[in-house]
Design a protein around this nucleic acid. Structure first.
Lengths: 256, 256
DNA sequence: ATATCAATGTCGGAG
DNA sequence: CTCCGACGTTGATAT
């Protein structure tokens, strides 16, 4: 069946398959193929996938996905900007996708097509999402007292020799506080990260407090944290979708 | 059209859509819907996606994907093990997917279906892939001399207070060598990682060498590496697909 | 283009 | 089940 917005075929011949894929690529359509195929990849790694039925998706932006009947991740893929081509070789349909840098090539050897279609997609909306580390950061800058009474932020993304501190501030006694934020349960790696940031402040005369801020913490992480004399503050990332005007650090005096 | 392996419809009515999705879910088929829809998610985060045309995939293992016409990643999804349901509410098709722990819910409000199909998928093959850190490790254990003449591995995944060392060994003079492997271009974070592992060996009498093993290294990482007196050894991850019997460390004497 | 960091990361393996 | 680290991570942002 064919209309203005999409074209769809069942059990097409090789000739039809070739024609429709070619047409879909030329129109920069979203192409969907359900077929029995083999897949080969060579580039950053190398992979091979034997014969089986999979869903193939070629998007207008060059993204190329091959999905098996399990898992969220595609079994093979190419990123946006890749160039797809279709060929017939020895009476078999080959679909290839290449990327230049790094050089990568994905080849799908199609044995038999079950359904084939392409769509001229109308979709202008972007996802609006809340509940990230960034949202926690905003929340703390808006309401520093949720960390503790008297906490004052000084800097955000403060650079150290071991990376960027999420939030640097002072407690009510004037001691420096280094906050490391995680939007989900924090593990030992988060504690190690915090520990590294503190190395730059080892000689600070007023003393420095390291605080891991996350909704929860693993047992091992808690142990390491306490062994290192660091602190944990439980905080859930806020999940409000309305796009609020962001608070900048201009509101705070960067006085360190 | 309907046959034993798949069912496919174009521009179905709500009633047909409901029936086919229900049937596909019951048969644990892979369901593919191209439709104009809205999407809501609530769980580890919260998100909203306005009206637009997207590809919806429901897999037999419970994975649920919504793909826009761009990017490799789905715009919304649910992991394997989630439970999908279809409803009609106020004359509109709703498809929901829930997960228990953590509690997550994805809701798709379908405005209009363009194509709808489900497949009973036959696919037994797993991906065979080569070119990982693991393959480099195997290669080095098989042929230690590629690191340097006289290099002898002692332990793999050797535990320190700062995490696991990829390979620990000795050079021909008996000095300890700590190898940190990366299957791609190494950055400063890799150097910092190596640096941390060495802390446990600061007092070793024979001296310890830290070696970063990777196909290449970033400029900043090279500088930091040299400033710390560490070394770089260029090594490409092998990309051989044949499943070779793995070498275990039983072949080496753990004598440290 | 390169480097760095977060993610509803996902996934696999070990305890 | 939880915890931990790798990934052809991807995607976004700053340099």
């Amino acid at each position: 069946m064919t209309n203005r917005r999409f074209t769809s075929l069942e059990n097409p011949t090789n000739k039809e398959t070739y024609k429709i894929i070619k047409e879909g690529l030329r129109k920069r359509a979203m192409i969907i193929i359900f077929s029995c195929c083999r897949v080969h990849y060579y580039g950053r790694a190398k992979s091979r996938l034997g014969l089986g039925e999979r869903l193939i998706i070629i998007k207008p932006d060059g993204s190329f996905l091959i999905h098996q009947d399990r898992k969220v991740e595609p079994v093979n893929w190419q990123p946006p900007g890749s160039k797809a081509k279709v060929k017939i070789e020895d009476g078999k349909i080959l679909v290839e996708s290449r990327r230049r840098k790094p050089a990568e090539k994905l080849t799908v050897e199609i044995e038999r097509v079950h359904t084939l279609s392409y769509y001229l997609v109308r979709d202008i909306h972007e996802l609006e999402v809340a509940g990230h580390e960034e949202d926690m950061c905003q929340l703390i800058l808006e309401s520093p007292n949720i960390i503790e009474k008297g906490f004052r932020p000084i800097a955000r993304e403060y650079q150290t020799s071991n990376g960027f501190i999420d939030i640097l501030g002072k407690d009510e006694n004037g001691s420096l506080m280094v906050l490391e934020l995680k939007s989900r349960r924090a593990g030992v790696s988060a504690v190690r990260q915090l520990k590294r940031y503190l190395e730059d402040f080892k000689n600070d005369k007023h003393g420095v407090r390291g605080v891991l801020v996350a909704p929860s913490i693993t047992h091992d992480a808690k142990e390491l944290l306490e062994a290192e004399g660091l602190e944990f503050k439980s905080l859930e990332p806020p999940q409000e979708l309305k796009k609020d005007n962001k608070i900048t650090l201009d509101d705070f005096i960067s006085s360190r």
